[in-house]
Simulated scan of single mutants.
Amino acid sequence: MPRKRSPDRNDHDDTVDDERADSKIDINNAPDPATATPAQAKKYLNRSVERVVSMLNELQETAVPMSLVEIHRAIDMPKATAFRYLWTLQKHRYVERDADGLYVLGLGFVGMQSRDLDVLKERARPWLERLRDEVGETANLGVLDGDAVRYVEVAESQRPVRMVSAPGSRDPIYCTALGKAIAAQLPESRVRELLEHVELKPRTAKTITTVDQFLADLASVRKRGYAVDDGENEDDGRCVAVAILGTRLPAALSVSAPASRLTLRDVSKVAKSLSAMAERLQPSGRG
């Protein structure tokens, strides 16, 4: 009697099927996936990959986080299989699970969202230049890149003595205003996960060097609406940053300057200007 195939078999079985099919695949004469007939698609299609893509499409198209039940029903996949796929995607940061157990697309896609990043850079550039001219200091756009913050657009101050980071350079999240502003928008579990891969080395006498201190600082960031690096990354530097909300990219804007020019009394005023700019750069903003 033929053995009945389980609808919830593991991925090893799909691998076996792929190996058996390899001898029938003509790699050099494969059809274009966009125009392949159903018969051709059946021959070349990888079921596991297609199911993962369907799952990611559901997460991308919805405006709110989804539960496991909603996902497995939406793509007609057994619940246990859906959870196993989600668990694997979460391990590689392509999916995140919040405190309520709901799923959203994760930070692993940041590097792939090149078009989103290009659009954000294009929109941000004139505003960064405007802010630089207004305050006379360097203005930056940064995004979360793995466990660090990457500077993707910089409007450099025209002053002879200035604080500046080159576009493409990276700094730790725990000692930068950009990193703090972005981290303050993430679930605590995600922040702890990021810091597991980082040695909290003191860069100055003021650098935060413990996870608990960093989490406490993030609570202050959320309360006041902006982040401050007060000589934590550079002894004579000060930086103020505000997160850009409503985008798929974990991003923030900042102003950086020598501490002698950007005094603590100036911080709230600069933060107000940054907040106004960040609102304009939101998807529904007027910028």
Rank of each mutant, 00 (worst) to 15 (best):
V198N: 10
S254C: 00
F109S: 11
E58Y: 13
E137T: 03
D116T: 01
R123P: 04
L274S: 05
A271Q: 03
L274T: 02
V154L: 01
G142T: 10
K24D: 12
G142V: 08
V53S: 12
R51A: 06
M77N: 02
D22Y: 14
M66V: 11
P38Q: 03
V154Q: 13
L178H: 10
P126K: 06
A34I: 04
A241V: 07
G142A: 13
Q60L: 05
K269I: 14
E156Y: 09
A251E: 05
Q213W: 06
M163S: 11
M163V: 09
T138H: 09
E153T: 12
L131D: 07
L195Q: 06
R51C: 03
D236H: 15
E153F: 00
Y151I: 09
A205T: 08
P31E: 05
T176F: 07
L195K: 08
A278M: 10
Y44I: 05
M1Q: 09
G179S: 00
R51E: 06
C239T: 05
R280S: 13
I182L: 04
L56Y: 03
A216S: 07
E122M: 14
V242T: 02
D145K: 10
D116A: 13
R280H: 14
S275D: 14
A177P: 01
S284K: 00
W87G: 10
E188K: 01
R203F: 13
V135T: 02
S6K: 13
G231L: 04
K272I: 11
V270N: 04
D76C: 15
V149E: 12
T81H: 00
D230S: 03
V135I: 03
S6V: 00
D32M: 04
E193P: 03
K43Q: 02
L117S: 14
L194G: 11
F109A: 06
P250M: 04
A82Q: 06
M277P: 05
A276C: 01
Y174F: 11
V270C: 00
I208E: 14
S114H: 00
G225P: 07
D147V: 13
G225F: 10
I173Q: 05
I25A: 09
I75Q: 11
V95D: 15
D18P: 05
A63H: 10
K180M: 01
P126M: 04
Q158H: 15
L178K: 07
D230W: 01
M66I: 06
A181M: 06
V242K: 07
R20V: 04
L131P: 01
L200F: 14
H197V: 04
L131V: 10
A181H: 06
R162T: 07
G168Y: 07
A30N: 02
D266G: 13
D14E: 05
R162I: 12
L59W: 08
R203E: 15
S275Y: 00
A41M: 15
T62E: 10
F214P: 03
Y151F: 14
G108A: 05
S54P: 01
P38K: 02
A216L: 06
E58W: 12
A74F: 03
S189W: 02
V95W: 07
R5S: 10
R20Q: 12
Y174G: 01
H72P: 00
A166M: 11
C239N: 07
A139T: 00
D212Q: 12
Q60E: 13
A34M: 03
A216D: 03
Y44G: 00
V267M: 05
L59C: 01
E58R: 08
S220H: 07
